[in-house]
Design a protein around this nucleic acid. Structure first.
Length: 594
RNA sequence: GGCCUCAUAGUUCAAGGGAUAGAACAAGAGUUUCCUAAACUCUAGAUUCAGGUUCGAGUCCUGGUGAGGCUACCA
């Protein structure tokens, strides 16, 4: 890496010129800003004191030294305390030429030293269909897994399905009461949507009961607990845990409807998993662990038989782990799941892609696991992402205030289709192929829209404004890729074969493009370190924008100098491959034409 | 009340303590006898407020204001 060479030479320079040792922390090598000449910039302010000279003089001195001692440096200039180094064209051309396997450009293969990383994402509840918030989760999880893998780790994607609990009992109860044996087939509706309808219905009826009780003079908080529907749902959960056959039967039937629906949505989104865990399988281990710790007095039991952890020493509250009726809560099963997974994979690192509303939950989970004696809990990492909000606020499934995942995807496809029709892009193509491309573009727009934002930040989504297809968008980058492929097809038609060249003059723009290709691998590493697909998005956008400018001012195929023409084709081809690879990390496909 | 996030053009997003705070959309003005105009070029427009640390702060610290989240025998 050229930056490392520069850093070493800089150390030598300071040693030679000022007889001082410097450590890595003082070394600041950054890319030179566009408005200045150069490729890399050394910030010399930290050395001014050692040099006992002005920043300009110091920079000049170090620059002189580096120019003479480093073959990669062809020139330098000084602006205030900034030493701008120019790297020779030769270096960049050689770099491009040395890319032998461009299909894998930027990606690292796992080795025996590689870390095993689990990425948990999706984690759906089986009582309602997926909405835009889940889309963000799924896209983030899938992308982070891809990025970690590309950075050289062994990665397994897992999904814990929250298939048991009071929430699913609510849907079941409502269906039992008011469903008249309706099925997805008879209703001609996706199973997850059908079950979701009954979840909403439960809430509606539940609220009616609360209001009725409040009208009799009962306090609202008490009414919430005393409403007969809730009591029935709780009774159903007890029966479920006692393995009552009738309840289990209904539970299995309705969950299967939901899974069928989820599979369709997952497929549309292009996400998948290496292993699916079910809470109904893991909660028992959680309960066993809790009971064990209770015996060991790490936990305590109240008079009503509920089991608690005292976390006041950690500055937190008391946390419930088993209800007074003995049933498990969310935390109980998550303890079980974590232990099971550690047994299964012996992971070095376990990333949980879960919304930031659960920050407290994961803080507690780690503490509890350590209390139970599992020191690997330190290796759990909660990738806490921001919510997707609507202009009127948070999405709420119970109240039906959501942007449904399936609806949104369909709408995007419709918009993409209209757009390509309007632009007359796919007119000569057969309908099947055109449909495929519209789909690719639609999902590219949606995925990029979500993933370009820093995961930690809240996303505001306005359903009234459609997601853009122009500017800093997925389709913009897909379009760039398609144009490159078109260029390469034309070259092929003209029987031009090409390879990278040395010893030619290249423009600044071309050098910048090679620099961006060079940077890709580092961007992947950084994205892996920060769990941030947004870094990949931003990088790819910059690359596409730079390429479009190059494409606009240079005509590749009419270039008279054959060496230059071949270089430009190689450059374009490589950039196309970088775009493709980068987008694959976001789970976005690139079309050969659009 | 306590704890945790966040705050940048009209809007949606960028900016590892470093140079003149970048883009896109929207607004306005242009570019097609030329490899795809879903492109390219130009104009106008922003760091919530008050302090502090630093040679240097959008970035770090303190406080104020505003928004969101958590603080459930929901998940």
């Amino acid at each position: 890496m050229i930056e490392l060479i520069l850093a070493e030479k800089l150390k030598m320079a300071v040693q030679e010129l000022y007889q001082q040792q410097i450590d890595d922390k003082q070394i600041q090598i950054q890319e030179t800003k566009k408005e200045f000449d150069g490729d890399f910039t050394i910030v010399v302010f930290p050395f001014v004191r050692l040099a006992k000279k002005s920043p300009e003089q110091t920079a000049q001195q170090i620059g002189d030294f580096l120019l003479h001692s480093t073959e990669e440096i062809s020139d330098f200039n000084v602006v205030k305390g900034f030493l701008n180094l120019v790297i020779s064209s030769d270096f960049w051309l050689t770099y491009l030429k040395n890319q032998e396997n461009i299909k894998k450009i930027g990606f690292k293969e796992p080795t025996s030293e590689s870390q095993t990383i689990l990425v948990e994402y999706s984690s759906p509840n089986t009582n309602k269909p997926l909405h835009l918030g889940h889309i963000r989760n799924n896209l983030l999880g899938y992308s982070v897994a891809k990025i970690l893998k590309a950075a050289g780790n062994k990665v397994y994607k897992t999904n814990i399905v929250n298939d048991r609990g009071i929430h699913i009992c609510k849907s079941m109860l409502a269906w039992q009461k008011w469903g008249n044996n309706i099925t997805p087939e008879s209703a001609n509706k996706k199973g997850d949507h059908l079950v979701g309808d009954y979840y909403v219905l439960f809430d509606k009826e539940y609220k009616k009961e609360i209001n009725a009780l409040v009208a009799t003079g009962m306090d609202e908080d008490i009414a919430k607990k005393e409403a007969p529907l809730l009591k029935e749902a709780q009774e159903m959960l007890r029966k479920w845990e006692a393995e009552d056959s009738e309840v289990r039967e209904l539970w299995k039937t309705m969950n299967d409807w939901v899974y069928k629906g989820f599979d369709v949505t997952y497929k549309k989104l292009g996400v998948d998993f290496d292993k699916i865990y079910y809470e109904s399988d893991t909660f028992k281990l959680g309960k066993t662990e809790v009971m064990r710790s209770l015996k060991e007095n790490t936990l305590y039991q109240k008079e009503d038989n509920s089991v608690w952890a005292d976390l006041t020493n950690e500055g937190l509250d008391h946390k419930l782990l088993l209800r007074s009726d003995g049933t498990a809560v969310y935390m109980t099963q998550d303890i079980g799941t974590a232990i099971l997974r550690h047994n299964d994979y012996k992971f070095n690192n376990h990333v949980y892609v879960v919304g930031n509303e659960q920050d407290y939950h994961f803080k507690v989970l780690k503490i509890l696991l350590k209390k139970l004696g599992y020191n690997w809990a330190d290796n759990l990492f909660h990738l806490s992402y921001g919510m997707v909000e609507l202009p009127e606020g948070k999405m709420k499934s119970r109240e039906g205030k959501v942007v449904d995942a399936d609806d949104l995807i369909d709408k995007m496809v419709k918009t993409a289709t209209e757009m390509s029709k309007e632009l007359g892009k796919l007119n000569e193509m057969d309908a099947n192929e055109a449909e495929k491309i519209n789909y690719t573009t639609a999902l590219g727009a949606l995925k990029y829209f979500i993933l370009k934002v820093d995961p930690r930040k809240t996303i505001l989504f306005n359903p009234k404004e459609s997601i853009d297809f122009n500017g800093n968008t997925g389709p913009f980058i897909q379009y760039t890729y398609a144009r490159i492929q078109s260029l390469l097809r034309k070259a092929k038609e003209q029987n031009i074969s090409y390879s990278a060249k040395l010893n030619i003059d290249i423009t600044d723009k071309e050098k910048n493009l090679i620099k961006l290709i060079y940077k890709f691998e580092q961007v992947v590493q950084e994205a892996a370190q920060k769990y941030s697909p947004a870094l990949i998005s931003n990088f790819t956008y910059e690359l596409a924008r730079e390429f479009n400018q190059f494409y606009h001012d240079t005509k590749v195929l009419v270039e008279s100098d054959n060496n230059k023409k071949e270089f430009k084709l190689t450059l374009s081809d490589t950039i196309g491959q970088v775009i493709k690879n980068a987008f694959s990390l976001l789970g976005i496909d690139v079309p050969n034409r659009m």
